[in-house]
Simulated scan of single mutants.
Amino acid sequence: MKTISLSEHEVRAAVSMREAIDAVRRGFAGLARGEFEMPTRTALRDGRFLVMSAHHRPTRSAMVKTLSVNFDRAPAITGTVVWSTLDRLDHLIADAGAVTTLRTGAAVGVATDLLAAPDADRLTLIGTGGQAPDQVRAVHTVRPLRRLTVVGTTEERARSLADTLRAELDGTEIRVGTDPASAVGDAHIVCCATSATSPLFPASALPAQVHVNAIGAFRPTMRELPDELLADSTVIIDELGAVLEESGEIIHALRAGALSQDDLTELGTALTSAPAGHGKRTVFKSVGVAMQDWTIARLLADKFLG
C-alpha cells in the first residue's frame, strides 16, 4: 500500500488546463447519466468549512475533500483532497486549493466553450482573488483572448493580477479597472469571481449578446448577478440540488419570480441537448460540485498511482 501526497506545485505541474477542461466535461456528462453518487456538501460556519464527496460507480472510486475558506488570508482556500478506490490499497492526497481553483476554472471552460460565441475574444474578469487566474486560463484555452480587462476593488490589486497573467497571454491587450459596470459594456465574456453579497453590475450595463460565468457566490448569503440578467438569459447551472441549496443568485431570483426551476438547465444536460434560450445572453452559474474535484483527483491518480 502506498499513499502519494501532492503539493499545490505538483498538482499544477501535473494537470494542464486543457486536460482539466476535457476531464470536467466528461464528468458533467457522466453526472447527467447518473454515474455519480454525490451528496450535497456539508457547510459549517456559513461555508467557512466545507466537506464534499463523490463516488463514481463505474470505476468504484471515490473522492473526499475537506477545506476551510477565509477571504482575509492568502490563500483563501486550504485543505486536502483524498482519492481512493475499492480495487486497490493505494491512496492519493492532493492540495485542495489547487484542485478547487483548477476544477472551477475547468467548469467555466466547459460552459464558455458551449455557450460563448465562437469568435468571442474580449473577457472582463471581476475579482482578483485565488480563483481569478484560472478563470482567465480556462476561457483563454477555449476562446483565445484578444483583450482582457481585470476589475478589482483597487487598481493596485487589478494591476498585480494583470502583471501575473501577462506572461501567459502573449499578444493579448490587458486593461485594468475598478468599476464593474463600465468594464462589462463591450465584453464578449464576463467572469465573476468575488465574495460579493449584492449584484456587481446592473443587467443594463451588459451588451445585448454576452456570456457570463458566475462562480464566486457559493452560499445563500452571497450574490453576484442581478435578477434582471437571469430573467433575460439562458441559465445553465452545475447541478440543480446544489444551486437550490447554495446559490444566492438563483435562490433570490426564484423567490422574486424572475426565474422558475424550469428555466434552469444542468450543464451535463446542455452538453447533449441545446437548452431553450430566452435571448442572446447566456449565464453559467456554478457553486461547485464534488464530481469536479473527483475528475481532477482521477487525473492525478492515473498519473501518480498508475
Rank of each mutant, 00 (worst) to 15 (best):
G47I: 07
T85V: 01
W83G: 03
T112K: 02
L102R: 04
I93D: 00
M63K: 00
L125I: 09
A116W: 00
I126C: 10
L145Q: 01
V81C: 10
R146N: 14
L86P: 00
G127N: 06
A111H: 04
K65F: 05
R45P: 01
V82N: 03
T42K: 06
D121I: 03
D46Y: 07
R146P: 00
Q135F: 11
T85W: 10
L92N: 07
V150I: 14
A74P: 06
S61C: 11
A106D: 05
A120M: 10
W83F: 14
T104V: 05
A107F: 03
D95F: 00
V69I: 13
A116M: 06
R57A: 12
T85E: 13
L125F: 04
A94Y: 08
W83P: 00
T100G: 05
A111Y: 01
D113F: 06
T141C: 06
D119M: 08
V99P: 07
T100V: 03
T40G: 08
G79T: 06
R146T: 02
V99R: 06
L86S: 08
I93M: 08
P118A: 06
P144T: 13
V99Y: 07
V136W: 01
S61T: 15
G129T: 09
V64E: 00
L145E: 03
T42M: 14
V108E: 07
F49R: 13
P75E: 12
A94N: 05
R147H: 15
Q131R: 12
A62W: 08
P58L: 13
T78F: 13
R48W: 03
A138I: 02
D113I: 00
R57F: 02
G79E: 05
L44G: 08
R73G: 08
V136F: 06
A94H: 11
L102D: 13
R73V: 15
A132F: 09
H91C: 12
D87N: 11
R137G: 04
T100P: 08
D87K: 08
L67K: 11
S84C: 08
D134V: 04
Q131L: 15
H55L: 14
V110D: 04
R137T: 02
A116G: 05
R146I: 00
R122K: 11
L92P: 00
Q135V: 00
L145R: 02
T78E: 13
L50T: 06
H55W: 10
T66K: 02
T59L: 09
D46M: 08
R147D: 01
L67H: 13
D87L: 09
L148P: 07
P118I: 09
D113S: 15
